[in-house]
């Protein structure tokens, strides 16, 4: 009981750190830039994190189960190419979305197969498939761009559902609610935690560990496919370099959200807060025209600091406890 209480306190603390950081960023940005606190501006700012957030959600589940997928951005590129060729063949938007999801799930299943059937560690498998998927994208498309997207396709990445709520933002909110319910309210979620905490024990207690891991990879692929629809629509064009380098940004969101890279720990609210924090932070820094490379440096420091704080405080607490015990 005490232990559960402790874990709850800890999660709470993590999310409150993120909440406080968001508050600080909001206040600093409002004070330093006259343009920041404006509904239109904030609505624009959401595009900085909606697509990445959408992939970060299943990635969080995957990482809680103890795996990781470095190939997500490469999957997005490959999905975009499938849509580009579909558009060339005159497919309607709905068929393009289906094609992207299918390719995404296929790539995710390929990762899942490597990890569960061939037993290649996830990090190694997806570093390889990252090159493979991105390489296929380059090989197929070469130096060409695909941009004959049908009318109506631009709605996915540029359309608004109601007022300042873009379709991207609404999709992200829906996906977040679904993932949170799945992870925190269902037996599937409990099992994902169990697999990440100790996959041998999970297997011994009758959980189909490899089945779960496989489907989490497939889900991550599907989310990459969906994110690719949104990004491709927002760019209204496809190139093999699409979403280059996004894998690290997405993983940064997940880790910053409090998901342990060793598995077994993390929450969906934490990941969403991290996505919002990073989106607002980069947007705020951009408003001050800070060079991008300095921005990534600040994010690097933030990442280490936020992960280090709970470790340091718990070590400090342990040290205090041990001295009390001895006295």
């Amino acid at each position: 009981m005490n232990r559960i209480h402790h874990i709850a306190m800890r999660a709470l603390r993590w999310e409150s750190i993120l909440g406080a950081a968001i508050l600080v960023v909001l206040i600093v940005n409002t004070l330093t830039s006259p343009y920041f606190l404006n509904a239109q501006t904030l609505a624009d700012a959401t595009f900085n994190f909606t697509e990445k957030g959408l992939v970060a959600l299943p990635m969080a589940l995957l990482m809680i189960a103890g795996d990781i997928d470095i190939s997500v951005a490469a999957i997005m590129a490959l999905c975009s190419i499938a849509m580009g060729y579909g558009a060339l063949a005159g497919w309607p938007p709905s068929a393009l979305v289906m094609a992207s999801l299918a390719v995404g799930i296929g790539c995710g299943a390929c990762n899942g197969w490597l990890v569960t059937v061939c037993r290649v560690p996830a990090l190694v498998a997806t570093i390889g498939t990252m090159s493979l998927f991105r390489g296929i994208a380059y090989g197929v498309l070469g130096d060409q761009a695909l941009k004959n997207y049908p009318r109506g396709f631009e709605f996915f990445g540029q359309g608004y559902v109601a007022g300042l709520f873009s379709l991207e933002l609404v999709l992200l909110i829906v996906a977040a609610l679904l993932s949170a319910t799945l992870l925190h309210q269902t037996v599937i979620g409990r099992r994902i935690y169990a697999i990440g905490a100790n996959n041998v024990a999970a297997r011994m207690s009758g959980i189909a560990v490899n089945g779960y891991r496989f489907w989490l990879f497939a889900a991550t692929g599907a989310a990459s496919g969906l994110a690719s629809v949104l990004l491709t629509s927002r760019l209204s064009s496809t190139r093999p370099t699409l979403a280059a380098g996004w894998e690290l940004e997405i993983i940064t969101i997940v880790i910053l959200g409090g998901v342990s890279v060793n598995g077994g720990r993390g929450t969906i609210p934490g990941v969403m807060l991290a996505a919002i924090l990073l989106g607002l932070l980069t947007f705020g820094l951009g408003m001050h025209n800070i060079p991008g490379i300095v921005m990534s440096m600040i994010i690097g420091i933030l990442l280490i600091t936020i992960v280090a704080i709970p470790n340091l405080t718990s070590r400090l607490a342990a040290f205090r406890d041990s001295t009390i015990d001895r006295s």
């Binding site: 490597l114 061939c118 037993r119 290649v120 560690p121 190694v124 498998a125 570093i127 390889g128 498939t129 990252m130 090159s131 493979l132 998927f133 991105r134 390489g135 296929i136 380059y138 090989g139 498309l141 070469g142 130096d143």
Partner: peptide, 22 residues
Amino acid sequence: SPFWQMAVNGLVIVGAAMLNEQ
């Protein structure tokens, strides 16, 4: 074709990793 070089690299890594595990 330079466009396919990256895919070849990826294939080599995946293949080697599978052999390792075998």
